[in-house]
Amino acid sequence: MRPRIARVALAAACLASLTGAAKVKMDPANPTCPANPGWSANPTMTFTPATKGGAKVLLAEGRIDAGAPDRLKKALEANPDVGEVWLSSPGGDARAGNAAGRIIRSNFGLMTRIPAGWACFSACNFIFMGGQPRVIDPGGLFIVHMFTRTGDRQSIDMSVAMGTDATKELIGDIEQDAALLASEDNDFLIRMGVSRKLLTEVMYRQKAIANAEDKSTRRCLTQAEVKTYNVANNNE
């Protein structure tokens, strides 16, 4: 079992960045979110041990690629005294995020945290939900969207150019993969103790792709919402 973290000291370290902060500019297209969410620009997620508030944490920063779960596992094995994983990510590979979340859950008592000024979006949500317990500090952002399997526009355009049969086949593949991913998401939330209403009432109600009438594709949950859906489940 991992050692208990000095929670009060960690919370103070996280909240320090809020002191004297300027008013946040909001995103006109996604009005619940800041214009510049505080996620890491690292092209692939890095896992860096650090000391915060006198306790050892693991900083998970950057885009989630297929190799992220293996790197996370190695980082935790090399640093068994880590008590928390802090997350800053724009998302990435959905299934890799799911796998990384399961690795965190397998390390009993390992907390996940989104500190003030940091943001966890898309596939990062599933890494965060692996924590037990989970904390989103005031000023930290848990950002959701409706997943889409139509990101490869080149393949779609090529399929359309090839004719109706090719397009139908591609659409069928996309629909099947999306259904499987939705099933995996439901199973994951059940196992992590997060309300499935997060999917039906929030995630799946977002636009997958912006259009002329509605450009919003992201939703930043409030502190009340993360507690309602049991996304955050620790009171400090």
Rank of each mutant, 00 (worst) to 15 (best):
M1N: 13
R4F: 12
R4D: 14
R4N: 14
I5K: 03
R7T: 05
A9I: 08
A13R: 01
C14F: 12
S17K: 11
L18F: 12
T19K: 13
A22N: 09
A22M: 14
K23R: 15
K25W: 14
K25P: 15
T32S: 11
C33K: 00
P34G: 07
A35P: 01
A35Q: 12
G38S: 08
W39K: 04
A41L: 11
A41V: 07
F47D: 02
P49R: 03
A50I: 10
A50H: 05
T51V: 12
K52A: 13
G54V: 07
G54S: 06
A55H: 04
V57F: 02
E61H: 13
E61P: 11
A66G: 08
A68E: 01
A68Q: 00
P69T: 06
K73Q: 12
L76W: 02
A78T: 10
D81M: 10
V82I: 10
E84W: 15
L87F: 01
G92L: 04
D93R: 00
A94S: 13
G97I: 06
A99G: 02
A100Q: 00
R105N: 09
S106Y: 00
N107H: 14
F108T: 13
L110E: 02
P115K: 03
A119Q: 02
A119V: 03
A119T: 07
F121S: 12
S122D: 04
A123H: 02
I127P: 05
F128T: 01
F128C: 00
G130I: 02
G131E: 08
P133N: 07
I136M: 05
P138V: 04
P138T: 05
P138S: 08
L141N: 11
V144L: 02
V144W: 00
H145L: 06
H145M: 05
T150I: 12
D152W: 09
D152K: 15
Q154H: 13
I156V: 09
M158Q: 15
M158K: 15
S159M: 03
V160K: 09
A161N: 05
A161Y: 03
M162V: 11
T164L: 12
L170G: 06
L170C: 04
I171L: 14
D173Q: 15
I174N: 03
E175T: 13
Q176D: 14
Q176R: 15
D177W: 15
S183N: 13
S183Y: 05
S183P: 09
D187E: 14
D187M: 11
F188G: 00
L189M: 03
I190Y: 08
M192W: 03
G193E: 00
R196N: 11
L198M: 08
V202S: 04
V202Y: 04
Y204F: 11
Q206V: 05
A212T: 12
A212P: 03
E213G: 04
D214P: 06
T217K: 01
T217Y: 02
C220E: 13
L221Q: 01
Q223L: 11
E225P: 01
E225L: 03
V226A: 06
V226N: 02
K227S: 10
Y229S: 00
Y229Q: 00
N234I: 12
N235D: 12
E236P: 13
